[in-house]
Structure formats: structure tokens, C-alpha cells
Amino acid sequence: MRFTLYRFNPETDSEPYMKDYELLNIEPGTMLRDALLRIKNEQDESLSFRHSCGEGVCGSDGMNINGKNGLACVTSVDSLKEPVTIRPLPGMPVIRDLIIDMTQFFTQYHVVKPWLIVKDPIPDVELKQTPEQRDKLDGLYECILCGCCSMSCPSFWWNPDKFLGPAALLQSWRFLADSRDQATEERLEALEGPYKLFRCHSIMNCVDVCPKQLNPTKAIGNIKKLMLKNMV
């Protein structure tokens, strides 16, 4: 099986380049991460990429696979067209090979204050929710912050410092939708202006690539609806 990988080492290369590799005897059902590990172990140990859990939970190995962002560890090589072209997630600075600098992504994540804000005195027992209230968090809390969605969003490419991006906005809605959170007003106010939320034009690239099948576009729509409700 043929692979074309994006390579860039800032210490030795002046420009990034694509390098071809060939792997023989790939077992059916092999995941892309394992194929990359084989290339690293058998052919070129200088190849660098992030990975950890190997089962789509940690969100480390987000990369651009044949033009579409995804997690290498949950992408079977059987489903990929040859040559498999792997590039780093687009839009962020490359540190080396497939490793990108995600600082901007996490800065925007912190902006939405991804934690519960409770103003009442904290009770001695846990803050309770009804099963219905808890159900509202399904499809939101599962996000693993791999960055595939934000790095597939043109609005995030153009304005990464001003537009929060689908991942951060999904988390914003996760806390707005939480019955225990008491900072709805402040959260909504912080999202006002033409950039932070409203650079989203609902093109749904985020939904298309999410390896956890989440729907940031719907979450963004819900935030807009809540803003509208609070305005009247």
C-alpha cells in the first residue's frame, strides 16, 4: 500500500515536502495509526506524529487523511484510496511533520469558560439533575478536543484569533444547556459581536469530519436561538 506523507523538520528543511512510502503485507482492518507506526518503526524513525490511546478517546492523532480531517486510530486503511495522502490538520502552524501547534485552538476553548459556574452556595450534596436535564448534554460532552472540526472550518482558518471555532462553541453550548450552570447571561454576552459566534455560516464541514459524530452546527444554532429568546 502506497502512502504520501507531509514531512517538515524546521531544523533541517527550508520548506515542507511530500515523501512516498510503501508498506507490504498490510492485514485487513489495520488502522491508519498502526500503518504509520509501522512506517516509523520499519522505514523512517524520524517521522513524527502525535498519538496515544489508539482507540479514538484521547484525540491526539487528528490529521488530514486524503483531504479530510479525521483520527488515524479509528480510520481503517481499507477505506482509503491509494496513495494515502497524509497532511497535518490545516490552518495551524506546523511544529514538525504531522504535529501542529494547537495553542490557538486551546486558547479559544478557554475563552468559553468550559466549566460549571454556580453562583448559589454550593450544597453539601451533589448538584442534582433530572434524567431529562441530563439528556440535554448528550451529543455535547463526548467531544475529545481533537480539533478536526475547527481545523476544517474556513471561518476558523480566516479568523482563528477572533472566531472561536466549532469545537469551542460546542463546549459553550454544553455549559449553556446544563441545568446546573448559572452564568447564561454572561456566557451569551461574551459571544456577542460579529466574530466570536457569528462567523459561522453553517457550512457544516465540522459535522462532516467529527470522528465522534457530534454536531457543532446544531449547537451553534441553539446558541443563536437562546440569544434571540433572551433578546425579546
Binding site: G193, P194, Y195, K196, F198, K224, M227, L228, M231
Partner: peptide
């Protein structure tokens, strides 16, 4: 105005 009019602009 160009600033601080996200929701209004979107709604209008």
C-alpha cells in the same frame, strides 16, 4: 455598526 452587532445583524 461593525462591532458589537452579531445577533442583530444575523437576525436582520
Amino acid at each position: 455598526s461593525y462591532q458589537a452587532k452579531g445577533l442583530q445583524a444575523w437576525f436582520l
